[in-house]
Design a protein around this nucleic acid. Structure first.
Lengths: 143, 143
DNA sequence: GCGGTGTCATTGCAGTTGCAACGATTATGT
DNA sequence: ACATAATCGTTGCAACTGCAATGACACCGC
């Protein structure tokens, strides 16, 4: 009876995150047929104008190959525009099309509702969870 | 500028969990060459005697195919024993071998140290994180 | 200017994952 | 008692992931 997995934080965090993500993924899958990498790229683009693959990779915790492929799929779907950067031609400039913006408006509302629901459920712990995640993030980033 | 992914809890939880898990995974990979499913199965077996694949599947948030394969690999490595159940011959009885118990003793200490470190870093938020995860777990389980 | 080094995005590839199908066994209803 | 349905663990398979290699381009020192 030495080690109890159910009291091990990294494990519990993983499980909670996986379940929550899966439940939310069902929503954007139903609404727009998006995969998780696609959702993340789209969501990030909604918040920050035209941006390179590398910028997204750095912020969204996704391998650059995944960002690249997600961006291609989003382009095929007409949600994202990929254009070259004039100043540095290695870079790609990603940005939402009007259709992409329209979709993100809908998805944004869905996400907000999902989050509001979650926050209500968490109640007073929500603030602390926020701070704890910030600390973990900060810790994992110093390398 | 409506939706900010960096303020979206499911996303932040995912990222934090992924980073933490990866850092810890490096430890048991180095110590014993285990994959994540293998680690989870082993850790669960350490805490609960002889048990079927289904039991682990239910508790450890892993598909039964993964539990099955992980158990097979652990058996090949001599860490786990797989025997049939007399009462219900569909079931398999999984339990640690002495070598498995010895390994888990070492890994348990490593895990405790990892967790202690994390808790120290989190400070007062640790309690609240614990409660928040419990609530999420509870919510995701009612279906 | 030019060679070497570094960075960017894409692609190939092997390993892993999740789902569905399967054979074996047990439970259920009548 | 028997047929049907449900459950268990394994396996096949397609999709996804992460890493490494590649090719295009930019920066740096000289």
């Amino acid at each position: 009876m030495s080690f109890d997995l159910d009291r091990f934080l990294p494990y519990r965090l993983s499980v909670a995150a996986a379940r929550l993500s899966r439940r939310f993924a069902a929503l954007y899958e139903a609404e727009a047929g998006l995969s998780t990498p696609e959702w993340r790229v789209l969501a990030h683009l909604a918040h920050s104008g035209a941006v390179s693959v590398r910028d997204i990779t750095a912020r969204v915790h996704l391998d650059k190959s995944m960002v690249s492929r997600a961006a291609s799929r989003l382009q095929e779907a007409g949600l994202v525009r990929k254009s070259g950067n004039a100043a540095d031609r290695r870079l790609v400039a990603l940005e939402l099309t009007p259709a992409g913006r329209a979709l993100m408006a809908r998805l944004g509302r869905i996400a907000e509702a999902f989050q509001a629901d979650l926050l209500a459920e968490l109640g007073p712990e929500a603030e602390a969870l926020d701070r704890a995640l910030a600390k973990i993030d900060q810790r994992e980033n110093r390398d």
